[in-house]
């Protein structure tokens, strides 16, 4: 069976057995379906945020609270992590184990850094008395960002697992396929963050 026309972006396993190709094809397609599902979840959280953004219940508004500088740094960190993951993907394609682990490590540090920045921001807001219990607006803000943050945390755990698996199994078929899916996941989170930046932080600053 020819699978040439049905390649998903980023996959290059054709040099191995056709069975592997088929396997990767199936799992990656399944993962795309999952990402679709996850995207709808975020879409609904964004919609909820949009309906709640003015429901401050007498509490502080986004314009009063948000620090665009911090959000910008978070954005940069996450964008850089996508870049470093991309470098890792190049190393994977070339089958070079060591640089792959290095770039995965860099991505992990950046991911953890992002989570740290986000937690710092939350701590700052809570310090000002702006908690998730303050208003419907802040509930939706914290939940939207936390769900994204939890995804990043899952991504970080996944990176740690993959580092261990690369060391254990080398660049086996399974390991390569998993890193490719991890990549889709990581870039997806980047994309979600861009939407958060433009729908949560930018309007608050612009107003």
């Amino acid at each position: 069976m020819t699978t040439e026309m049905r390649h998903h972006p980023g996959i290059n396993l054709s040099h191995s057995r056709p069975e592997d190709e088929r396997h990767a094809e199936v799992t990656v397609f399944g993962f795309w379906t999952f990402l679709m599902n996850d995207a709808i979840l975020f879409a609904l959280l964004f919609a909820t945020y949009a309906t709640m953004v003015n429901r401050t219940a007498g509490g502080p508004t986004g314009a009063e609270l948000f620090d665009i500088g911090n959000a910008f740094v978070e954005t940069l960190v996450l964008l850089l992590s996508s870049f470093s993951f991309g470098m890792g993907a190049v190393a994977l394609k070339e089958g070079r184990e060591h640089p792959l682990k290095l770039w995965l490590g860099v991505t992990l540090v950046l991911g953890l850094g992002f989570i740290g920045l986000e937690l710092r921001e939350f701590a700052g807001l809570i310090g000002q008395g702006a908690t998730a219990q303050t208003s419907g607006f802040l509930s939706s803000f914290y939940v939207l960002l936390s769900i994204h943050g939890l995804h990043v945390l899952v991504g970080c755990i996944w990176i740690v697992v993959m580092l261990a698996q690369v060391s254990t199994f080398g660049l086996s078929r399974q390991v390569r396929s998993r890193i490719l899916r991890l990549g889709l996941f990581w870039h997806f989170l980047d994309l979600v963050w861009i939407v958060i930046f433009t729908t949560v932080y930018l309007p608050a600053v612009a107003s």
């Binding site: 709640m52 219990q133 208003s135």
Partner: peptide, 12 residues
């Protein structure tokens, strides 16, 4: 204790 759908606190 968040306020997504409560009567008070800006729930909807």
């Amino acid at each position: 204790g968040m306020h997504f759908f409560t009567n008070d606190g800006g729930g909807n």
